[in-house]
Design a binder for these strands. Sequence first.
RNA 1: GGGCCGCUAGCUCAACUGGUAGAGCAAUGGACUCUUAAUCCAUAGGUUGGAGGUUCGAGUCCUCCGCGGCCCA
Length: 496
Amino acid sequence: MKEEKGILEARRKKAEELEALGEPLFPNDFRPTDRAGILQELYRDYDQEALERLNQTFKLAGRLMARRDFGKAVFGHIQDQTGRIQIFVKRDEVGEEKFKLFKKYYDIGDILGVEGPLFRTKTGELTLLVRDLRLVTKAFRPLPEKFHGLRDTELRYRRRYVDLIMNPRVREIFLTRTRIVQYLRDYFISNGFLEVETPMMQPIPGGATARPFKTYHHALERDLYLRIAPELYLKRLLVGGFERVFELNRNFRNEGVSTQHNPEFTMLEFYEAYATHEDLMRRTEEILVGLAQELYGSNRITYQGQELDFTPPWPRIPFKKALLEIGGVPEEVLNSREKILELAQAQGIKMDPREPVLQKLWAKLFDALVEPKLIQPTFITEFPVEISPLARRNEQDPSITDRFELIVAGREIANAFSELNDPRDQRARFEEQIQKRLADDLEVHPEIDEDFIRALEYGMPPAAGEGLGIDRIVMLFTDAPSIREVILFPHLRPEA
RNA sequence: GGGCCGCUAGCUCAACUGGUAGAGCAAUGGACUCUUAAUCCAUAGGUUGGAGGUUCGAGUCCUCCGCGGCCCA
């Protein structure tokens, strides 16, 4: 057994003493009827007299966060999901025996059940005068320091439960995350979209270019991959006759972990039959403005010190034009592999010189030179067909696609296009992708998803689809600099 | 992947050019019936992220490693 250090040992010993006195440490028969934050709100404007007239007692459970001991009376604060409220425990109110238990055996960090009327202290704070109290859950570990709380970033992520106890701002971020997810779900449901669930484990990972996680199904004796995107399955549903569908769930990509990337992240993908990417641009504007209004009552929000204005319409800039004018890449460079590689070298942009697809090099330039400069919401359109294997070709110019990406604050927030529904072209694009694939490229799967082609052969209605990066949207609307601040349990390397 | 910064008591942080590792909060014992970072007295608490090295002597200097953060790409 691991040797325990002073404080842990003391707490354990104390708990065992309490247990020996016949007090259960983890009872489950206390039923609170009130909550701290609700009481604060309800009785905010009640003065002492009004509270007395109420002539009512309240019952709540919460974690003891602080105590101030005066001998025969103790002030404390208890905290539940909704907030905090001060409690006043007096010997004369709770009786000698319970008072002694409280003073000697209950610690900061314990969850207590308390009962009594509300009053106002001399300083005017709404306070529960405790008539009865008991231990609901004994804490065997001490909380962090009351004033500074838990600051160490690493510890905050590794022990998010402590982070949530100590830092109200963190609770707020995750409450906002839930509101955002609920808003989006409501939006799509009320616009006639069906929420569906498609496979997380796929025999052929598709719908994006990314290195997948691989696993193995023993009974089937086959490899399976955690999905990198749900796209190909959602399109099968369009074939099946569901005309508006969405899925809001996790994707997995086997890439680095950092403040901007988590190996599992949340994506909302939606597909709309008989719509085009133009329609989706308008929808995207509507959705983000709606969120800004819902959360802040304004089209403008502040992100990391800069103001973002979501008032539509947002600029639409063709991909190539953005490279030339925003990225400052000269036209003659774009058409020469050698010159691109030269430029990349000079600017320290990482590129594989063996990469056979010129447009993939363009994409690298775009990520490095254009994306970071786009702060206000901007649609980039007309992506080259070579890097858009699932998007419909533009009718006038078959070298580009009817696709857009939404960039906000230098980050890709959404990716959408009118869907390619010609099975012949789709097969040709997949074949092209595999043919041009470098032998050690783990981001392009070397097999064609034949069943997906077969589905297209049955006829997929014309449609447009979009993926919204939920973590990034939450970052924007909670002013979070790191993806780790908006994911409850972000992946970190194993503890040192 | 590269550069820089950090890792010291449960938590938040000190410790000059290398010279006996400290404080506040938390804890323990005590005083106190309107405090809110309560106050006052006392006590205890450490393999300084890990492994090597230099030195009479290392938290401090050097090397390697681990984890995190920031910046670059």
